[in-house]
Write a protein that binds this DNA or RNA. Sequence first.
DNA 1: CGAAGTCTTGAAAAATTTCAATTCCGGTGG
DNA 2: CCACCGGAATTGAAATTTTTCAAGACTTCG
Lengths: 245, 245
Amino acid sequence: MTSQFTARCRQHSRSVEPLDCARCSVRDLAVCAALPPPAADALERHVTSLELQANAELARAGQPCRHAYSVTSGMLRLVRTLADARRQVVAFVLPGHFVGLSEHAVHRHGVEAVVPSRVCAFEIDGIRDLRERFPAFEHTLLDRACRELDDAHDAMLLLARLSPPERLASFLVRLRRQMSIPAHDPRMALPMGRGDIADHLGLTVETVSRSFTRLREQGVIALPDPHHVEILDPAALHELASALH
Amino acid sequence: MTSQFTARCRQHSRSVEPLDCARCSVRDLAVCAALPPPAADALERHVTSLELQANAELARAGQPCRHAYSVTSGMLRLVRTLADARRQVVAFVLPGHFVGLSEHAVHRHGVEAVVPSRVCAFEIDGIRDLRERFPAFEHTLLDRACRELDDAHDAMLLLARLSPPERLASFLVRLRRQMSIPAHDPRMALPMGRGDIADHLGLTVETVSRSFTRLREQGVIALPDPHHVEILDPAALHELASALH
DNA sequence: CGAAGTCTTGAAAAATTTCAATTCCGGTGG
DNA sequence: CCACCGGAATTGAAATTTTTCAAGACTTCG
């Protein structure tokens, strides 16, 4: 099953063998944890590990869905693009999370690496099979789908009704939580560029930049460089983001 | 189990007995269809039919989730409201659709009737029990959750990147599909008011109204009255809505 | 038939985007 | 090791869009 990856992403990804799920860094987080040992073995037979360069395309909107992916390191983005290049980053996907549980025949969004990343690719047929044989697996998937649905509803409220600084504050708070950054650590990395943030928050890069600047001027955050934020006033940040948390 | 409804919504809803699921008008659409006969019987024992007045509150954000609902007639809205009254209608729920599959302990949004409606209320515990006993049921729920997730992603793109007339056109196209209006029938009813549309599309009522007027002036639609639209130029409407369809 | 609420329309105000220019940063090669 | 190049980020000013504020028309329903 490796060949079609190397064919599609020849310059961007390579498959990495052998695979040792028992040592997987995200095993407890990932869907794999929901499976009893025999099922996990079955799963392993259907999995390929992939290494992705920054901006590598794992899938393109419109393509048939052949695999589901579990991220083990780095960060992915799910992207929808209109004919006139308007773009929306539907979600950023962090290690331990899963892409492609939908039963759609074709991808509804592109899947791209934000930074160099590693993912486990599962054959859809294998997943379907496991779903039928192990109710606990399906249960876990439903649970995750509901969580994602809640996230999407949060995102809708953010896009529909929050001001740019509120959107940015909410985004930072959510990202910190997704990355499991402890509250006492003020530092955080922003792996994605301003363009991705803008397309995630429904703004322009300029407005995102100005919102960063505003938060900095108000003493809420510091920006050592464009890819690092320091939370100086957590209370103020949460106040701004309060709508969604 | 009827008492807590009549207690909560005394002036707004009343429970209607007896219940005859075999004659349910949305049986084929509803989740109930996913259950084998013995399970359907089990389900019936946990269900109450409710009649709701327009604007009746079926659930309020923050309340514990005790029931899931299947709409049999009318229309519901899922609403999130911020402390300062900013509001977002996350979704309109039509007959055959299901509310409350999430396993959250508390409601994340209010559930309200847009127009006089009828719903079947299921006890959460009963649902959980059926999920465990009938994998097909869980499978159906997951399927629906994925569909809703796709819808939510569509909504995110709409809110993030479409112009007001594009949002309105997309909304009309989607609503026609949800209501199963055949393509050759130009007429459609808009049960909800402008405020609900505005809060669904992330706009103000004024902007919604101006967008309707714009579509009318361009000959795309006619507006016999505020609650009825006639599609005069389907091609133009779909062109505007093309981003999402 | 009348009152209340809803919808539409207009004009002013505010916010965001667009366009343009400058600065900054990381990577590359001398 | 440092200077330079190119993409990314920031900043400013003008233009556009949407909201806000205000008033009037229209339904809808009692």
